[in-house]
Simulated scan of single mutants.
Amino acid sequence: MQEEVESRSVTLIISSAKLTARVLKAAIAKYLAHRKDKKIAKARAGSVVPHGKQSVKELVGQNAGVSNLEITDSNIKSFDRVARKYGVDYAVKKDRSVSPPKYLVFFKARDADALTAAFTEFTAKTIYRAKRPSVLSRLQQFKELVKANTIDRVKHKEQERTR
């Protein structure tokens, strides 16, 4: 009886080993297929051209001819919004060699017209912001008006009581 149990357990172990080898072979095959699919997907993704803000290296790598403009304004974020609106592919590089840092905006040569329109809108917004008074200064003016108005009322009440 003991011998029969031992032989069955050995048989069970052998069949498990074979099953494990089959499973291992299938797992390796699936892994290799997965790697192949990933490689193909990565190759497809590499062919997709990035749009909007990107690095200078990516912009030059598109072989479309690159031009640049210089911006001295530190508010580059507002330019980013306008450039996205016009669909311009560009890269911003900060030049720290100058004491007020300047920004170089690289763009594709074929996007020159769109970039001109974007810069026109950007400069118009910048000029409008510089021209309009700040909210704090307007608030201060209104505070002074209210303060002057309330002092006037107090004087009138005192004069009426003394009569």
Rank of each mutant, 00 (worst) to 15 (best):
K131I: 13
L145K: 15
E144Q: 14
T123D: 13
E70P: 06
V98L: 13
G65Q: 00
D111C: 00
D80R: 02
S78G: 10
I76K: 05
S99H: 07
S55Y: 00
L115D: 05
D152L: 13
S78C: 13
R110M: 06
D95P: 07
L139F: 15
P100K: 05
S137K: 12
R138W: 04
T150C: 02
K94V: 12
R132L: 13
T126E: 07
G52V: 02
R138N: 03
G52D: 01
R110C: 04
N68C: 15
E70W: 06
P100G: 05
D73A: 08
V154T: 05
V66Y: 10
T116L: 12
K131C: 10
E70G: 08
A109W: 06
V56I: 08
S74K: 14
I151T: 11
D73T: 11
V146R: 10
K77R: 14
A83G: 02
T72K: 12
Q62G: 04
S134Y: 12
V60R: 13
T150P: 01
H51V: 14
Q54V: 13
T123N: 13
I127P: 03
K102R: 15
T123Y: 15
D111N: 00
D73E: 13
V82N: 00
S74R: 15
I71D: 12
R129P: 07
D95H: 10
A91Y: 03
D113H: 04
S74Q: 15
F106L: 12
S137E: 10
Y90E: 00
D152W: 14
